[in-house]
């Protein structure tokens, strides 16, 4: 808590907009409102939403932060690219590319754009199961109108290096929000903030490093088979298609139902559990809440 209050405390004292103490006097509030309006836009990071073969559900999830999204766009990030939200034709240079969807390798434009996104963005985040693992597009084999020859869909990590994974179908508004705030701290924060952001993002970076295949089987291969499962039930709660039940206190995956989104394994406390971050849950959640006020 000491570290966190220092991190977020020092931040609010500086000229950069950041987490503020929850309780403020009216005078302080007014002062801050004025400060916010004068704040130079240059402090923000630039973010783009790159749309590959996905259902736009990930974008909807981002939007489902409601007021929080407006705060993010107001204080921390400028949306410089996004087919549905920004009137920009070509992928510009940006700090963070949020990529949704897998890449259809028969679609030249998609292949070109994902490579361009890698070149133009400092950080590439795979948002959602399709970008991370292929997800439901893993089952695509062509034949659909009006491009029946579009039959091969790859997770973006098979074509470019990806820095951060946000698995799940759809990824949750809250995890996207947390990653956005942490990405801001990583790129624009002070030393302590950068350190926290790095620690927070590390497991999501390690997931990106781990590979582009995911399945409910991961629970067997990497948790149960490794003697790590303790039957908490996180995987079943995380599964968007209710493919996971528990038999004898251990997960039982209906593999016919699994859509390969990667949520179960990433949610499992025995896939990763970072003792330098999670025990600070109270302070970090407070800070994120305050950052979005």
């Amino acid at each position: 808590m000491g570290l966190l209050s220092r991190i977020f405390g020092t931040k609010s004292a500086s000229s950069e907009p950041k987490a503020k103490p929850a309780v403020k006097s009216d005078v302080e509030k007014k002062a801050e409102t004025i400060k916010k309006e004068e704040k130079p836009v240059a402090d923000k990071i630039t973010v783009g939403h790159v749309h590959m073969s996905g259902c736009t559900g990930c974008l909807v999830s981002l939007a489902d932060n409601y007021g929080g999204l407006l705060t993010i766009l107001d204080k921390y990030a400028d949306l410089v690219y996004g087919l549905t939200l920004a009137d920009v034709r070509h992928i510009p240079k940006m700090d963070v590319a949020l990529v949704e969807g897998s890449v259809c390798i028969q679609d030249k434009l998609s292949v070109h754009e994902i490579k361009e996104a890698r070149e133009k963005a400092a950080v590439v985040v795979a948002v959602g199961g399709c970008a991370c693992y292929g997800n439901i597009t893993r089952f695509g084999r062509g034949g659909q109108p009006n491009q029946p020859q579009h039959e091969s869909y790859l997770p973006i990590g098979d074509l470019i290096k990806v820095d951060v994974y946000i698995p799940g179908c759809a990824p949750t508004p809250q995890l996207i929000r947390n990653v956005c705030v942490m990405a801001y701290l990583l790129l624009k924060g002070n030393k302590d903030q950068q350190e926290l952001a790095k620690k927070y993002l590390t497991p999501l970076m390690q997931l990106a490093d781990r590979g582009t295949e995911a399945c409910g089987c991961d629970l067997m291969y990497d948790v149960v088979n490794q003697g790590l499962c303790m039957g908490c039930g996180s995987c079943a709660a995380a599964c968007p298609v209710r493919a996971i039940t528990h038999e004898y206190g251990k997960p039982n995956v209906n593999r016919e139902m699994c859509i390969k989104c990667g949520a179960c394994y990433a949610q499992c406390p025995r896939s990763f559990f970072n003792f330098d971050v999670i025990p600070e849950f109270e302070g970090i959640m407070d800070a994120i809440d305050a950052a979005l006020k």
Binding site: S61, I166, P167, G168, A170, P171, T172, P173, Q174, L175, N178, Y200, P203, L204, C232, G233, S234, A237, A238, C239, P240, C261, G262, A263, C264, A266, Q267, C268, P269, F273, V277, I278, P279, F281, I284, M285
Partner: peptide, 17 residues
Amino acid sequence: QAVRKGQLYPVGLRDVP
């Protein structure tokens, strides 16, 4: 631990944290 991980990293726990 699972609950707290779920609150900080809600991969599949939309609106739960």
